[in-house]
């Protein structure tokens, strides 16, 4: 990153540059949303983790962006999957990094919450100075919402604007054509009957 190998960075330096949201559940579901988001400020706090005024305003900002103000005192085990995912993203946002990595942020959510999460991610990417990079199986939604897509295929990996990729017919090769085909005009997949 920035011309330097990742291993050359100290753990703490990296923490100020990259934040993550994993698919694995957090170890303790007994933390409240506020406590969870506040943990995102750890790279900047002193040895015992005292929150400064600046930390508090960043936490509040992250809660605001992800519409969690009303939920801030709820424990994580009381939240729905979508709410918990938003809380985890808020934590990553509070970490104030240039790069936010998310591993399948929309898996096991219903359509509405998938779209909600992805739209929030898009607005974070556009409003703050954060690069949001996530893995996903939701190709159709990614085409509609993402600025750039990297397709991890067999052998060749295409990268570019969704529209460019459609023109390059990059999506057609993803799946066996006897099961699903890609419709370039609507940007979606059709099931072969």
């Amino acid at each position: 990153m920035k011309g330097k190998s990742l291993n050359a960075y100290k753990t703490l330096e990296l923490a100020a540059m990259v934040s993550i949201v994993l698919t694995e559940p957090i170890a303790s579901k007994n933390v409240s949303v506020l406590e969870l988001v506040a943990l995102g400020r750890q790279p900047y706090t002193n040895w015992i983790g005292t929150l400064t005024q600046k930390d508090k305003s960043k936490i509040l900002e992250a809660l605001n962006v992800l519409e969690l103000i009303e939920l801030q005192h709820k424990k994580c085990y009381e939240l729905s999957d979508g709410q918990l995912q938003r809380a985890l993203i808020a934590r990553a946002l509070a970490q104030e990094t240039t790069l936010m990595l998310l591993d399948e942020p929309t898996s096991h959510l219903d359509l509405y919450h998938k779209v909600q999460i992805l739209k929030l991610l898009k607005s974070i990417a556009h409003k703050t100075q954060t690069t949001v990079l996530f893995t996903s199986h939701e190709i159709e939604m990614a085409i509609q919402l993402c600025d750039k897509i990297l397709i991890l295929g067999k052998g060749e990996n295409h990268f570019g604007d969704p529209c460019e990729l459609i023109e390059q017919k990059a999506f057609e090769k993803l799946f066996p054509t006897d099961t699903v085909t890609f419709d370039a005009r609507s940007g979606s997949f059709r099931i072969e009957k």
Binding site: A15, I20, L22, L39, Q42
Partner: peptide, 20 residues
């Protein structure tokens, strides 16, 4: 204390928060 708090999220998250 700080690393204990980070550990509430799991070791991977703790690492990503700059905890050795």
């Amino acid at each position: 204390i700080k690393s204990l708090n980070a550990l509430l999220l799991g070791e991977k998250y703790a690492q990503s928060l700059g905890i050795n």
